[in-house]
Simulated assay, not measured.
Amino acid sequence: MKMLIIYTHPNHRSLSYAFLQEVMRGSEENAYIEEVKVLDLYEEGFNPVLVFNENKRRRDMYTDPDFATYREQLMWADKIVLVYPIWWGRPPAMLMGYIDQMFASGFAYKEVGKLMPEGLLKGKSVVCISSMKGPAHYPLLMLNNAHKALMRKALFSYVGIRKVKFFEFGSMESPKGKQKEKLNKIYRYFSTLNR
């Protein structure tokens, strides 16, 4: 299995970065994981701003040469792992800008004249690892699970990815947040993952 990790947090001393380290540590010990690539969007200097003008048109995004390497990474990966905080009930704008530009028509899906398009990223799977300051049940009880609906239904299902696993950790700024237990849970998951 080839795995692409997309890390989205500006601070390498954050809990999100600690989760990234546990993903990598577990993956290194897993013989089933053949190769791992990490895309750190902030370190990469990824520009999340959409630009459409006389030279850049939305319908041509899927061939934009500026994104060729990122498209190759997504096509290469069997499993895509997203590591990010939840801010204001959703992923950071940096990650959403990446999604806006990478999951474009012609690359991630194509219109086929039906209610739903044909997803072009079938066969891949996704793991979302997110953390938040608020309690774990806040997104479900107060936001109608908006974060998971956005990622699973509005994005990944749309592009043909059916297998999406979530680790959504709450109360991460609390001394009682059980951070070490949650980090160990991520390590164990990736060290034993077999598909």
Rank of each mutant, 00 (worst) to 15 (best):
M1Y: 10
M3K: 00
M3V: 09
I6P: 00
Y7W: 09
T8Q: 01
H9L: 07
N11D: 12
H12T: 11
Y17I: 06
E22F: 01
G26V: 03
S27D: 05
E29A: 14
N30E: 06
I33N: 03
E34G: 07
Y42G: 04
Y42A: 05
E43M: 13
G45E: 12
F52I: 14
F52Q: 11
E54P: 09
N55E: 15
R57Y: 10
R58M: 15
D60R: 07
Y62D: 05
P65I: 06
F67M: 09
Y70N: 03
Y70M: 09
R71L: 06
D78V: 08
K79D: 06
V83E: 01
V83C: 03
V83H: 02
P85S: 06
P92I: 02
M94D: 03
L95M: 13
M96V: 07
G97Q: 02
Y98M: 06
D100C: 04
Q101P: 04
Y109Q: 05
L115E: 13
G119V: 08
L120R: 05
I129W: 05
K133T: 10
G134L: 15
A136V: 12
P139S: 10
L140I: 10
L143N: 11
N145D: 11
A149L: 14
L150A: 04
A154M: 13
S157A: 14
V159I: 13
R162L: 12
K165L: 03
F167W: 06
E168G: 00
E168P: 03
S171T: 12
P175N: 07
P175M: 07
K178G: 11
K178F: 10
E181V: 14
E181F: 06
L183S: 05
N184I: 07
K185L: 11
K185P: 03
I186M: 00
I186G: 02
Y187N: 03
R188E: 15
T192A: 15
R195E: 15
